[in-house]
Design a binder for these strands. Structure first.
Length: 272
DNA sequence: ATGGGCACCTGGCTGC
DNA sequence: TGCAGCCAGGTGCCCA
């Protein structure tokens, strides 16, 4: 479900309610997520204060004095603030109850998400350590992509969805950025010029920032930290629009598959 | 090292 | 109405 903009929207939504707040207790209702939820969360977290809510790629980090909680929303997860007394529903797997009386509630029907406890530096956790640069920060550029793509025969769309290349880009925004950059998603990464990679890097920055401004993309169930949907779905040019007219030239949007994921593109506007 | 395929899990939608 | 089949915003592992 959530890519970088949805995770960032979630972070911004919850940050005011969790930063500087002390944890009263933790309720784990299901621990069989993508990795098991450690009992240390409920044993160690109460009494500690959440210093910061940060994001790295699609991961959220709730920092305490040393270490913290690493959260990932998988395909179907979301986080929101609720009054702690709110009755849990079927897929509400975890509550971090604060002394303010609000709880950070983690919901995830498919349970591809994660909630990990660490006393080490969260950014050094094996799951985060190999993430590529943040696409909205220094260190990410078309020239970087060009260098990383040298010799790669992988399709450019799969290349930019590889979190080791760039963090946080999932299927929606990969499709959208390639459309805006005018690049065919099936092109080999190693066959793209520095100039075209610069267009792609810029398209990624622009599309991710626009999506964050609109609160992310809600296709069916994404909600921000306050339970509200995002409105970037209204701006989608290609994702989910197979057979519909291209917003730029009117040609039918093509729907294909790459690496098991749906790909949408305009064969007129994305010739190469 | 690289790329392809699959598994993990639930729910919603489509079409018979 | 029921049900089978397919699809979904992610990612890590196994294999060639």
């Amino acid at each position: 479900m959530p890519e970088l903009p949805e995770v960032e929207t979630t972070r911004r939504g919850i940050a005011p309610y969790v930063e500087g707040k002390k944890v009263a207790r933790v309720v784990v209702r299901r621990s069989d997520l993508r990795l098991p939820v450690s009992g240390e969360i409920s044993a160690e977290l109460p009494g500690r204060t959440i210093r910061r809510a940060e994001r790295r790629g699609k991961y959220l980090i709730l920092r305490i004095e040393r270490g913290g909680i690493i959260l990932h929303l998988g395909m179907s997860g979301h986080l929101r603030m609720v009054p702690a007394i709110t009755a849990p529903e079927k897929h509400d797997h975890l509550d971090i109850v604060l002394e303010t009386g609000l709880a950070l509630r983690f919901t995830d029907p498919r349970r591809f998400g994660l909630a990990l406890w660490t006393v080490e530096e969260p950014l050094n956790h094996p799951l985060l350590m190999r993430l590529g640069p943040e696409p909205l920060e220094e260190g990410f550029s078309g020239d970087y992509l060009f260098q990383a793509g040298r010799g790669r025969v992988l399709a450019v769309k799969q290349f930019i969805m590889d979190s080791r290349i760039v963090a946080g880009v999932g299927n929606i925004y990969a499709n959208e950025a390639l459309f805006r950059a005018g690049i065919n998603p099936a092109l080999r990464a190693g066959a793209i010029s520095p100039a075209r990679f610069r267009r792609l890097a810029e398209a990624l920055r622009v599309v991710l920032n626009e999506a964050i401004e609109l609160g992310g993309t809600t296709l069916r169930d994404f909600r921000d930290g306050e339970g509200k949907p995002g409105y970037f779905a209204l701006r989608l040019d290609v994702y989910g629009r197979g057979g519909e007219p291209c917003h730029n030239c009117g040609a039918k949007i093509q729907a294909t598959r790459q690496g098991g994921r749906a790909t949408y593109f305009c064969k007129v506007c994305q010739k190469r």
